[in-house]
Design a protein around this nucleic acid. Structure first.
Lengths: 146, 146
DNA sequence: GTGATTGCAAATCTTTTGCACTAAA
DNA sequence: TTTAGTGCAAAAGATTTGCAATCAC
């Protein structure tokens, strides 16, 4: 599995990222980007990020959190991880990798792309092309504390 | 990928299945089981099954469809497939297998377990055990017609 | 200024729940 | 009968949308 290698971005980097993505560095977007990209890789839900922002004294409406998460995802700064119907997780690790999912706790943990080798793979049907391969290892039992 | 091998169950088989699962063979459950298990393997949503039942002249409330899908899943007659946040698919193929997911159309297609070989796999952390491994190959472009 | 962005509240969508009613055993 | 199962309508979550107010440039 992947140690939560940091992708620390300085305040300047964050502004850069947003500008390159064509997103105005508004107060809200910068605040959310700091929370998301300021430290280790993380998996977070809209609700979770919203709460976290509030905890840091930044008021951002939930609708804006949703908008921002989708804009960041479209810009390639985030990746959406689908492991739970009815709840979207966003992953700050956009490298090729996979996940452990603790079904009991809802916790998500990265597995580096190299740690999983898929040696046989069916060809994608006719004109379709592979956008991504997601491997989710669903776990039961004692989740390692986060 | 997996040809939709049928698991045709005769009316008698269906009653058997339900009884073994400890589920009373009510009119609604039998009707839904026929739609689900009467032919090829399929991937269906609650809403979809509800509509299909209505199309066959069987009235079943949506709440009952949800209840039934979950009961069938708990009984091992169905498997839930999570590929789309905010919508649950149920798969009548409960064998070990994986999926192609056409992101454009939402179509889901089986890949037999043997067609995908995962040769390296990280050990599950500490006391956790692997409940299931899901491989989803997300596709873009021309979906083969169903 | 001007157009992009935000906040709020309402709307939407999927799924669950409470409870009186119905049906299987 | 007796208890499981069903239907309905309301509730619960997660997410989206419409639109006036606000902010970045």
């Amino acid at each position: 599995m992947q140690s939560g290698k940091s992708h620390l971005r300085s305040p300047g980097d964050i502004l850069q990222c947003l500008r390159i993505a064509g997103l105005r560095p508004t107060r809200q977007r910068v605040a959310l980007a700091r929370l998301l990209f300021g430290g280790d890789f993380r998996h977070i839900t809209a609700e979770g990020l919203h709460g976290e922002a509030a905890g840091h004294g930044t008021h951002v409406s939930l609708a804006t959190v949703y908008n921002t998460l989708h804009q960041f995802t479209a810009a390639g700064l985030l990746q959406e991880v689908v492991v739970d119907a009815g709840r979207s997780y966003f992953d700050t690790n956009v490298a090729d990798h996979h996940h452990f999912f603790y079904e009991d706790s809802g916790r998500l943990e990265d597995i580096s792309g190299q740690a999983v080798t898929i040696s046989a793979l069916p060809a994608p049907p006719d004109g379709a092309q592979i956008a991504r391969i997601d491997v989710v290892i669903r776990l039961r039992g004692r989740p390692s504390e986060a």
